[in-house]
């Protein structure tokens, strides 16, 4: 019975559902209304690694919930308003006020534990692929799901993140991997905040928004009685019609 238990323990799957308390960033929010779409692959992200030998265990690391929780808090602190785009109705209703739509994806996730490396450190490394698209690039598919053309982006940039935690007394492998994942998420946020404005395409986009707001302020002071032109509305509708649904389903 004992032998069977030991054998079973060796072959079992170690599962981690990443959990943590994430702080609000200490920032002056950018005067931007940002749309955010978490694709299902992101919101339900999990990582499975099959054991290489009998002495090792399979690993299943579920980061999806923590990803959504973490990035929600970060974006809320970083931008004036964040609009979660979950359906076509939101796209249509809020299109005029949304400056851009951010779509995060996890490109890669790697982990190491002491049994892999003989180093007393648990590590998690992640590579994100962020895409910023115009609201006009979001389409509705026949089944109602949202999609976008990947080539139709305002900016696309990677963010890497790293988290490590040393082995500690009375800490299980699962707890240590969870902690490393939380550190990696925090690192991803720090990397995102510090590199956002420095990404060339983002800088161009931010300049465009600032210029548009200046122009709007000037025109409103010149002609206070006239209605505000929604410059993007005609582009939006033509772009939606023009572009095929060739992009990624969200």
């Amino acid at each position: 019975m004992l032998c069977f238990t030991l054998l079973a323990a060796g072959c079992s799957t170690k599962q981690v559902v990443v959990e943590g308390n994430f702080p609000k960033p200490l920032l002056d929010p950018l005067p931007i209304t940002l749309g955010v779409i978490y694709p299902s692959a992101f919101a339900e992200h999990e990582f499975f690694d099959e054991a290489k030998g009998r002495a090792e265990s399979d690993w299943l690391v579920k980061t999806g919930e923590a990803q959504v929780e973490f990035w929600d808090i970060l974006f809320d602190g970083m931008f004036d308003e964040v609009v979660h785009i979950r359906d076509w109705e939101t796209v249509q209703r809020r299109a005029a006020e949304i400056d851009g739509v951010l779509i995060p994806a996890i490109g890669d996730l790697q982990y190491t534990i002491p049994t892999h490396t003989n180093v007393k450190i648990y590590e998690i490394w992640m590579r994100y692929e962020f895409r910023l698209v115009d609201i006009a690039a979001i389409h509705q598919q026949e089944d109602g799901a949202l999609s976008f053309n990947p080539d139709e982006h305002l900016a696309a940039w990677p963010i890497t993140a790293y988290g490590k935690t040393p082995t500690a007394f009375l800490q299980t492998d699962e707890e240590a991997v969870n902690l490393a994942a939380v550190v990696a998420l925090r690192d991803a946020g720090a990397h995102f905040v510090t590199s956002f404005g420095a990404t060339p395409d983002i800088a161009v986009w931010l300049d465009g928004i600032a210029r548009r707001e200046q122009d709007a302020a000037l025109s409103s002071s010149d002609d206070a009685s006239g209605p505000q032109p929604i410059a993007q509305s005609s582009e939006t509708s033509s772009s939606v019609e023009r572009e095929p649904d060739s992009g990624g389903t969200l």
């Binding site: 960033p25 200490l26 925090r186 690192d187 946020g189």
Partner: peptide
């Protein structure tokens, strides 16, 4: 560190 996030992370 939480109060000043993300300015006192290992990266920053």
């Amino acid at each position: 560190i939480n109060q000043f996030y993300p300015w006192f992370e290992p990266r920053t």
